[in-house]
Amino acid sequence: MTDSSNEEGLRIEIDDSVAILTLDMPSNRNAFGADVAGDYTRFLVDANTRQDVRSILIRSTGDRDFCLGGAPSKTPVAAPRNLFDYRAVSTAHIEMFKALWEVERPVVSAVQGTVAGVGWLLALLADMVVAARGSRWTHVFVKRGMIPHAGDSFYLPRIIPFHRLNEIALLGDTVTADTLSDWGIINRLVDKEEVADTAMDLARRLAEQPTRAVGLAKRHYRRSLEVDWNTMLREEMAGQAIYTTSADRNEILAAGLEKRKPVLTGD
């Protein structure tokens, strides 16, 4: 296992092909700014070509707060000079969530405590979500005098049923992970003591899958939300053709013929 940093911010560890991304900013209740968003983005972009990363686990320190949203960067940012300058305020978070949406490695989030603001995207853009019973989720933007941003208005309608999303976003009421589980948004609802182990178990299982097949499946499901039928089927066909050249696919075929368990490397 390797650890990239001991300071407050984003800690990155690799444990047997599982990349563990820990948001470790307890003094700020795990709210994070542009600098930490940039750390996420750089890792997620690189992850697609890293042989030592076959799945990703996103979590936070402590059980009080998963993430309370955005925060000022450690590096001072110049004050906006006019209305148009405000467009740049959320750029770093937009790039981060784009990278999280597009990363081809499977992602699991482990959620405990309070989730607010962009914390929703950090949790729900994972492929599988493990959450503690009773954890509190507050969309918060409207009540803070803001509108949803950082990609919220693109991603959440693709994840949360439309009328449920309106209730969450327009009223700003707090809901629990129990409610989100009832709506089909949480994969595993467990006691808080079980969140870490349950999420890691899923991440390890995903790391044992044929990595390139998983990545192409992820890409295709997301693309299907944005393109027409003909485009999607052609991309699916191209992906299938590409995957037939992978080492894991050929190992699976050989193992089937030889009646043994395949040994997958992620290639």
Rank of each mutant, 00 (worst) to 15 (best):
A88W: 11
L189E: 01
A254W: 06
Y243R: 13
E193P: 02
D248G: 07
A132H: 01
D173T: 15
E208H: 10
P106S: 09
M1W: 12
A247G: 06
E104K: 12
E236K: 10
D248F: 08
A238E: 13
S5I: 05
H149Q: 12
S4H: 09
A92C: 08
R249Q: 12
D85C: 12
A71E: 05
V103E: 01
K261L: 09
G134N: 05
E236N: 09
L180H: 00
L253Q: 14
N187R: 13
N30S: 02
T176G: 06
V53A: 05
L216P: 02
E7H: 11
T2H: 13
I20C: 04
G151L: 01
G69N: 00
T174I: 04
P262Y: 06
H149F: 10
T265K: 12
E194T: 05
H163C: 14
G117Y: 01
R136G: 00
R50G: 07
R164C: 01
G62M: 05
D24V: 04
R260C: 11
R158A: 12
D173V: 14
S224L: 08
L125I: 08
D152P: 04
N166Y: 08
G266Y: 04
M232W: 13
T174R: 05
T245D: 13
R260A: 04
G33T: 02
A126W: 01
L122M: 09
E236Q: 14
G151K: 03
L124W: 00
G113R: 03
D63G: 10
G119Y: 00
